[in-house]
Design a protein around this nucleic acid. Structure first.
Lengths: 132, 132
DNA sequence: CTTGTGGTTCAAGCGCGCTTGAAGTCAAGG
DNA sequence: CCTTGACTTCAAGCGCGCTTGAACCACAAG
């Protein structure tokens, strides 16, 4: 299992070294092994960062992601991981639905030819108006 | 068509008046009609704000959303709206796929019983590792 | 007339997710 | 030996999306 310096890792995940140090500082990445003071990462870090980016794109905050991933630095938190995960799945489902709705709205509006998302006839048909 | 004060509007869309003023200041909402200095909004603003929130949840920046919605304050921009919309649809599609992947990853990982998203066997099977 | 409520503007502040800058350390190469 | 370049730490700064505070205004009820 190859090891990576911070520069190599940063290049591979297309981030800046500063971001990786920041992640470590907030506990998103475990403190890297140091070799003469320098960070050396196991290759598995690539995967971890991929997960982090994925979750981030899905709207998780770094603090939430830390909770999701933190179970091995805090074994007692296994229960917490289940809880968070179970709570997050329906959130993700709803989020996916909303995003699909937006995608379809944009597409319909393009097709409709109204040239104006805001005033599109198609979209105006069945919409909330309010909820108070 | 009922009109709303900024407080009423804010309550209905569950935002603070300051946020609505901010939206106006950055051009996301058209300058509201003033009655003795105070903002008065047409009911259609509810819908516009709903769209804004939707787009925001989908990861659009306010600047992008402004572009999406701005076609009536800038009629020449109709072409721009088509362009932006056409560009954004595949982005949304990819985003939806990624989010679904995450959702499924979390669900699989829960089902797998590994108790640790980061090290989950199921997830480790077919993953990128890198792309440089 | 006074107080209260809810607006107005403008500038400054804040939390998040980093980036940047200053000052120092270390290893390899000319 | 000295430079180069990639690293280190720490503190400060930045852009986004608002929020907050100060100072002011307007209308309504008591």
């Amino acid at each position: 299992m190859r090891e990576l310096g911070i520069g190599d890792l940063a290049r591979q995940v297309r981030m800046r070294p500063s971001a990786l140090r920041y992640y470590e500082s907030v506990g998103l990445l475990p403190p890297a092994r140091r070799v003469t003071g320098r960070r050396v990462y196991p290759a598995s870090t690539l995967r971890r960062i991929a997960l982090i980016k994925m979750a981030q794109r899905a709207g998780f905050t770094l603090a939430e992601i830390r909770q999701l991933l933190d179970t091995d630095t805090n074994r007692g938190a296994t229960r917490q991981w289940r809880t968070l995960a179970e709570r997050k799945i329906p959130e993700l489902d709803q989020f996916i639905q909303e995003t699909q709705a937006l995608r379809n709205a944009v597409a319909d509006c393009l097709a409709c030819g109204c040239m104006n998302f805001d005033n599109c006839q198609l979209l105006s048909s069945g919409t909330p108006e309010d909820d108070a």
